[in-house]
């Protein structure tokens, strides 16, 4: 009962074994509900992934991964979408990794004014909260139209790169924080400058943690659809992209358009499921790599303390 204070609660419990038994029944029931809820979430995840794999696994073959689409995308592979997603991931990383890591280093190693740190951190949180479709509009307005990049790998990479900045900054900061202060002090006391300390001591120790963030951000860049819809993605390209100003097919956008547009939605279901499997596997592998890096990192940090 939410209205009762703990004192009333204890007083009433003192009344006898009866209320204690009731309390224990309530406890059992609530714990049961929580176990069921947690279990339900896992079951839904397994059902979802399981169903997609069951329906799509027959579409997966070497040809599916390495061929161009044929016959108005009703047959053939998804090579251009895989390559497109790869280029966008790469482009986003080129933007977000250096800026993100440097921002994190500034925040955790250099910044001395707590007010400035607070403001920058607030902006990072706000940037992280901006809906992805708004990033898409921004990318369209600034990169595609105003800077004249057109719908292209470049415009999409820039948009995804900005979207990924907060992810990289946060995880890098977290990784930098886990490096013990004594390491820095030892280095500084030997006469090293702050930069030497960061470059030779702090960064190498934080590297696995930073890698975790990079992997997570790559996964995110691979899976985002709304930001690339107006900035990079094409329904179909007859050739592979040949410059950073080419528009590209991308895995998430391919799933979206195949499932919602065109004349052959039902006919191409297997391609949609197959593409979903490829995208899920890509994202899961990146996340798994990130998790493993984090796990080993934590263990090492623990043993070194």
């Amino acid at each position: 009962m939410p209205g009762r204070s703990i004192r009333e609660e204890t007083a009433s419990r003192g009344a006898g074994a009866h209320s204690r038994r009731n309390a224990d029944i309530v406890e059992k029931a609530m714990f049961g509900i929580m176990r069921v809820c947690s279990f339900a979430v896992l079951v839904f995840l397994v059902l979802m992934l399981g169903y997609i794999f069951k329906e799509g696994i027959s579409a997966i073959s070497l040809n599916f991964l390495t061929e161009m689409p044929r016959n108005e995308m009703r047959e053939g592979g998804i090579l251009p979408a895989i390559l497109g997603t790869f280029y966008l991931m790469l482009g986003a990383s080129v933007i977000s990794i250096p800026i993100g890591i440097i921002t994190a280093i500034y925040l955790s190693e250099y910044a001395s004014n707590p007010r400035v740190v607070k403001i920058i951190r607030l902006e990072i949180n706000n940037l992280a909260g901006v809906p992805s479709v708004v990033f898409g509009l921004f990318g369209l307005g600034l990169f595609v139209v105003y800077l004249g990049f057109g719908v292209s790998i470049l415009a999409g990479s820039l948009t995804l790169g900005i979207l990924n900045l907060p992810v990289i900054i946060r995880s890098t900061e977290e990784a930098l924080l886990t490096v013990p202060k004594t390491y820095r002090e030892a280095s500084l006391s030997l006469g090293a400058t702050r930069w030497q300390t960061i470059y030779k001591i702090v960064l190498p120790n934080a590297l696995p943690g930073i890698l975790t963030g990079v992997m997570l951000s790559l996964g995110r860049a691979a899976g985002e659809t709304a930001p690339i819809m107006f900035t990079a993605a094409a329904f179909y390209t007859p050739t592979l992209p040949h410059s950073i100003f080419s528009e590209v097919m991308a895995l998430p956008y391919h799933i979206f358009v195949m499932a919602t547009a065109g004349l052959y939605i039902d006919e191409t279901r297997h391609i949609q499921y197959g593409t979903a499997i490829v995208l899920i596997m890509l994202v899961l592998l990146l996340n798994l790599a990130g998790l493993i890096a984090r796990y080993r990192f934590r263990r090492r940090m623990k043993s070194s303390l």
Binding site: V41, L42, L45, M48, Y51, I52, L216, G219, R220, A222, G223, E224, T225, P252, Y253, I255, F256, A259, Q272, A276, L279, I280, V283, L284, N287
Partner: peptide, 15 residues
């Protein structure tokens, strides 16, 4: 549970 956060929204929409 954290894996759920990494599943692309387009996949969840597709499902």
């Amino acid at each position: 549970v954290e894996i759920i956060a990494s599943i692309p929204s387009v996949v969840i929409g597709f499902f």
